[in-house]
Design a protein around this nucleic acid. Structure first.
Lengths: 202, 202
DNA sequence: GTCTATAACCCGATAGAC
DNA sequence: GTCTATCGGGTTATAGAC
């Protein structure tokens, strides 16, 4: 069995994702981790420290927890972009459209977060964006010259976050699928332009 | 001076936007509306009823509160799409990037909202999407034949919501501007394709 | 309609035994 | 390291005077 501290972090990660930060109580985190409310304070002096540990866990685990499952069997870098989006669609379907991106939900739930919390949220978004940017870098020869791959990576993330938000709120995957179709249309146009550009590329 | 009920709704609207639903107390709403905490319960039996009134206010006021200021002096329907996004960018700048879309924030803060709350949140997203869809409808002759204008309208909303989320979290307009540039690039390609399509349109 | 006072409850955090 | 017990403070909502 994992260490008590680990069990507490995992329990908090689950509860924050499913019910939010403010709604989750220290007692619930303890119960979920088979520990007592008071014991939580041996490892974490404040509730916010648990949140920081959870955000670190997401950040450190992005490969193993998110990218690896989403990209299993998908080698093409452009298809990886859409495989990641498809992974989120799967999470929506699994949950009956109750799923929300844990980082996005925390980012909007906490209106005036402590700077250290806000920076860890931003670091998680940054790691996600970089993963997409790496895909676009791999596929650079198939994309138009002069394309700003950073802009496009951010655009993929805003699409995912907005699409999950709308799907969750309407309890339907329809808006998610609509946004992804529109993004795919954009990518198709980018790939088509690059393929007719031809000639020397560097 | 506005009626007490109106002042309460406006106060709640402001406080929910700035500090969130759960963080805002009934006492604060009363204080902000120059009424007493106990008086709030004369008009609203529960806190959730205040939230419902706020969501109705947003929905009924979308023209006056949002679209009219954003579209002042902008006639072109495509430019109206980007003027609305530019309006949100202005709100970000004004607030030092603390701004969040009030509907989006509530949608992610409340993880298991009462169905009636969730439906009013969804109705607000739907009204926003329809406003964009109307612009695209006006500009239909300049857009590619067979373009799914509903998909594209949803895409504009997901871009706005995602972009505001990232800007707020990083306390920078950079990701907002990146996402809007990428969306503009997409629109440019759509308009270019339609202009070279030429011939008969209907 | 508006006010004061308070009931009833829950939470984060602490103290201290073992 | 883990437990029980509890403090102190804040919240929604109610009761009832005016």
């Amino acid at each position: 069995m994992a260490s008590t501290r680990d069990r507490l972090v995992i329990a908090a990660l689950r509860l924050f994702a499913e019910r939010g930060y403010q709604t989750t109580t220290i007692a619930e985190i303890g119960r979920e981790a088979q520990a007592n409310a008071g014991s939580v304070y041996f490892f974490f002096p404040t509730k916010q420290q648990i949140l920081l540990a959870v955000l670190d866990r997401y950040h450190d685990g992005i490969e193993e927890m998110l990218l690896a499952p989403a990209w299993a069997g998908v080698g093409d870098p452009i298809e990886r972009v859409f495989a990641l989006l498809e992974h989120y669609r799967g999470l929506l379907v699994e949950s009956g459209c109750a799923y929300g991106c844990p980082i996005g939900s925390l980012a909007l739930e906490l209106h005036e977060p402590d700077p250290v919390v806000r920076e860890k949220l931003a670091a998680n978004f940054e790691a996600w964006t970089r993963a997409i940017e790496a895909c676009l870098g791999e596929a650079r020869e198939r994309l138009p010259q002069g394309l700003d791959r950073r802009d496009l990576s951010v655009f993929v993330l805003t699409t995912m976050e907005g699409a999950v938000m709308l799907a969750r709120t309407s309890r339907s995957t329809a808006p998610f699928e609509a946004a992804v179709r529109a993004l795919r249309d954009h990518f198709d146009r980018l790939l088509r332009e690059a393929s007719t550009q031809g000639g020397e590329r560097r």
